[in-house]
Design a binder for these strands. Structure first.
Lengths: 196, 196
DNA sequence: ATCGTTTTGTAATGGATGATACAAAATAAA
DNA sequence: TTTATTTTGTATCATCCATTACAAAACGAT
């Protein structure tokens, strides 16, 4: 059943992500999707099932790529303070200067709308949130073991703090508000996240 | 031009808000809207213009009602520390237990999707964000004048901090994640907002 | 080169969408 | 009550949507 082989599935999926990211699930028409992906609708159906399955796959892919880029930045930096800074900067950078031109966060600004309306989105958004919380907390725990953070450091609480701050930043980015304003208070935020 | 007089315009608009809030702009069909508003489409067009104008009016109305409820809670409480707590609790409460059943924040979780796609939404979201920043900061400034906060207290920076934290909370609420988890770290967040 | 198969493009399907024309009903005026 | 006007409900419009049938083209095997 006509699956095309002469095209890059990953690139097509990335193109679909960018369309959904910009227009939302309902706002993205099949025409928007197919023209951005460079395929005709029959191919889309053969490869991805239907619009709904494509959407879920786009969410999964984004969760494992762009969406967790700040997490990777956080985990890659060896010094914990620099790691927190890297997380914040990476968040702002991806939310404001993504190569696709889409602003904000696909999960935070688009998938959130379809929660409860499009099947499969609620669990995925929940997993993305709690997963981020846990990955951030895990790093803090490791720092505690190494003695770089006090033994009573509330890792999960501060992880959630970081994540929540992130959401404000991506909303500002989505609204195309100047990211320099968020840059201003960054030092204090870092200090607070690591305080006591 | 048949404008109906035998119905409550405000109630109809509130019903429209709840539909848009739950389903987003594109996801809300005229049928969804008219049946929730208790009117037929000709009446909707006579009273509100069209779907697009109704959406913009819904945004404006929400911005001046539900959306700023936490701001009112913040401004109403006389003690500044209790005021910050009131802001946070009000945010969580409205985002999780709104009478309409809609979760999260209409602006943060729905309008954000249509930014750049639906005309008139970008300015409105920007105004809502910067307006909230300024109202929060204004209260801090007043406290400084009264000597309840140090003279070098960075009002706007902390206002933005509060607002950004709020966005994380409404996203968790939209995803129907347990709000008790956010309640846990509340004391520290309040301390951090008012620190130094 | 020919045939069978796979990939691509066109075109059409039924259904739903946003928007209105129009008639029925209700109201107000005389 | 009769008439003019306004409000409501029905029914329809063209259009766009997601989806798929089908034909054309490209490919691979023999």
């Amino acid at each position: 059943m006509g699956r095309p082989r002469n095209f890059n599935r990953d690139e097509a999926l990335q193109a679909a992500i960018n369309v959904f990211w910009k227009k939302g699930y309902d706002g993205a028409s099949m025409k928007d999707l197919t023209s951005a992906m460079g395929i005709n609708s029959p191919s889309l159906y053969a490869v991805f099932g239907d619009k709904h399955q494509l959407y879920l796959e786009a969410i999964d892919r984004y969760s494992n790529d762009d969406g967790c880029a700040p997490l990777v930045a956080f985990e890659s930096e060896s010094d914990i303070e620099k790691a927190v800074i890297a997380f914040m900067r990476s968040t702002i950078d991806y939310a404001s200067n993504h190569e696709s031109g889409s602003k904000g966060c696909f999960l935070g600004n688009c998938v959130s709308t379809s929660v409860g309306e499009v099947e499969g989105t609620t669990e995925r958004l929940q997993d993305a949130i709690t997963g981020a919380d846990e990955r951030l907390a895990a790093r803090f725990e490791k720092e505690k073991e190494q003695g770089n953070l006090p033994a009573d450091f509330p890792s999960l609480e501060r992880a959630r703090l970081m994540f929540d701050l992130r959401q404000g930043q991506v909303l500002r980015a989505r609204a195309e508000l100047d990211q320099d304003t968020t840059e201003a208070g960054l030092a204090f935020r870092v200090k607070m996240i690591l305080a006591i």
